[in-house]
Nucleic acid binder design. Structure first.
Lengths: 258, 258
DNA sequence: TACCTGTCGTCTTTGTTGTGACAACATTTA
DNA sequence: TAAATGTTGTCACAACAAAGACGACAGGTA
C-alpha cells in the first residue's frame, strides 16, 4: 500500500516555518502548493487537509507575504513562489525587525540606572548549553589580558575550541584538562597542562563534570552538570567568588606541575 | 511634567520583538530588565506592568531563550542579557530554522508533478511592491540572453536600477522610458531610449502608470497601479501574452526611433 | 438541474493575558 | 521568644484573542 498523501506526514518543516511567522494552515497550504505545479482552492484543500473555507483567507495572507501568486482565470488557480526565494524573503523581513529591535533596545540599555557595585557581588545562574556557551563567547571575545580554563575534557566542545582560536595573541591563555587534542585544535600560544587524574582536582566526581572559565581574572563562569539534563552554569564578577577559583587554579598548577 | 515611566510608551519595539518569536509579556519583561541593572520579580512587575504572578513563567521562558539570567540569592534577582547578544542569538535560531526549512521545501519542490505546459498558459497576479520587485529580481538574475524594459520613469526605482546593474554584460539590455537618469545609475551596455510623451505609448493614462519587464523574450511582468494603494502586477510565460508585448515593443522602437 | 466556486457567520480549540488565593519564609513587633 | 506582618514563589483558574474547523448560501458554469 503506498503512503497516503494526507497531512499526516508532517515533518519538522512546519515547526521551522512557524518560527518564520507562518501559522499551521499557512505552512500546510504553502507546502501543498509546492507539491503540485498549480492548484485551485479545492485542490489545495484536498492536498493539504485544510478546510476548504479556510483556504481562501490563508491564501490571502500568503499572497501578502509574497509566497503565493494567483491566476486571473475563473476559477482562480494558485502557485507557490520557489522555496528558496520565498523563505529568503521571509527571513529578510525578520532580519530587518531584528536590527531595528536591536537598535531600540540598545538605546534603552545604555540609559539604564547604573549600580554596578551591587551587580558585581551577585552570582548568576545560566541555563541551557547554548546560552552558557554564548556567555563564554562573550567573556572570551571581551578578554583583554588573560584567559584561564580548567575543565573536564568533555566540556571543551568544538565550539569552545573555536572560541579559543579566535582570541588574539596578546591575551595569555592557560588551559588545564585531562584528555588530548588533535593537532591544530589549539593555537600555539595556548599553554596546555595535562591532568591525568581529574578526580584529585575535584572537577570530576562520579558522573558530575565541572569546568571553570576565567577571563581577565575578573569574570568567572562555572559550568556544572555535564550529564543529559539541561546543563546550568554560575557566572559572577564577585571578587570573593573569583578569588576562590583563582586560589583553586594556583593550587592546581603548583601541586600538579611543581 | 516628566514623562511617566509606565508601560504606556511602548513603541514599535514590541512589534519587532514579536516577529522574533516573543510574546507581549516576554517583550515587556525583557525591556523592563534592560532599563534597570537587575531586579527582583516584584520590581519587574512594577516596571513592566505585567501581573506579578505572570512574571515568573515569563522569566522562565526568557531564560530558556538565553535573554535572562538569575541570581542564586533569595529572593532571586534577574538580569537581562545585553540586547545585541540577545537579539543576535534569537535571530541565529531563526536563521537555522530558515535554512532547514529551505532545504526541506526545496526537496518537496523538486519532486512535484510537472505540468509546465498548463502553467505556461497561465497569467499570474502578484500583489505588493516588495513581492513584485522580488519577482523582477528573480527574472533578471535568471536572464540568459536579453532583458527588455519599457516603463514610466517612476516605476524604475533605485531597487530596480540596482537589479539592472547586477545583470552580466553578456545579456543585452534595452530600456525605454521618460525622464532621465543620474550618471552612473546604469551600466554602459544598457541601450537607453528616451520617450518624451509617454501617453502615446499607452504606458501612462491619467494617474495610471504601467511598466513592462521582459526576460529572454520568455517571461513578462506587467506592473500596474502606480498610485497609493498596494500595487499589483501580472506575470506570465504564455507565448500569446508575451507576443502581445513583444509586438508592443517593436511598435515603440520603430515608430519613435525610426 | 446539478455542480462548483468564493464568501460569510459561527463555534471550538488553543495560547496568551490577567486575577486571586495560599503556603513557605523572612522580617518586624510585642 | 512568640506573635504579627509582609514578601516570595507557586498554583488554579477566569477572561480574552487568535487560529482552527464546519456548515450554509448566493452566484456562476456546465
Amino acid at each position: 500500500m503506498p503512503m497516503v498523501n494526507t497531512a499526516k506526514n508532517m515533518g519538522p518543516v512546519k515547526e521551522h516555518l512557524k518560527s518564520l511567522g507562518l501559522t499551521k494552515y499557512e505552512a500546510l497550504v504553502y507546502i501543498a502548493l509546492l507539491r503540485v505545479e498549480s492548484a485551485s482552492a479545492t485542490e489545495i484543500h484536498e492536498i493539504s487537509g485544510v478546510p476548504r473555507a479556510s483556504v481562501y483567507p490563508v491564501l490571502d495572507k500568503l499572497m501578502k507575504k509574497g509566497l503565493v501568486s494567483v491566476s486571473n482565470t475563473t476559477p482562480k488557480r494558485f502557485d507557490a513562489a520557489p522555496p528558496d526565494e520565498g523563505v529568503e524573503h521571509l527571513l529578510r523581513q525578520i532580519e530587518l525587525d531584528a536590527t531595528a529591535a536591536k537598535e531600540e533596545l540598545v538605546a534603552i540599555y545604555r540609559s539604564r540606572e547604573d549600580r554596578e557595585e551591587k551587580k558585581q557581588e551577585m552570582i548568576w545562574t545560566l541555563s541551557g548549553r547554548e546560552n552558557i556557551e554564548n556567555r563564554i563567547s562573550d567573556m572570551f571575545s571581551n578578554a583583554a589580558s588573560s584567559v584561564i580554563i580548567f575543565a573536564s575534557r568533555d566540556l571543551i566542545t568544538p565550539r569552545i575550541l573555536d572560541l579559543i582560536a579566535q582570541i588574539p595573541g596578546t591575551v595569555s591563555i592557560d588551559l588545564a584538562t585531562n584528555g588530548i587534542f588533535a593537532p591544530g585544535d589549539l593555537p600555539d600560544h595556548v599553554r596546555v597542562r595535562s591532568i591525568e587524574n581529574l578526580i584529585d582536582t575535584g572537577l570530576l566526581q562520579g558522573d558530575q563534570m565541572a569546568g571553570v572559565f576565567i577571563a581577565d581574572r575578573e569574570r568567572v563562569l562555572l559550568r556544572l552538570n555535564g550529564d543529559e539534563t539541561t546543563p546550568s552554569a554560575l557566572y559572577s564578577e564577585s571578587p570573593a567568588f573569583l578569588q576562590l577559583f583563582l586560589n583553586y587554579w594556583n593550587h592546581i598548577i603548583t601541586s600538579f606541575f611543581s
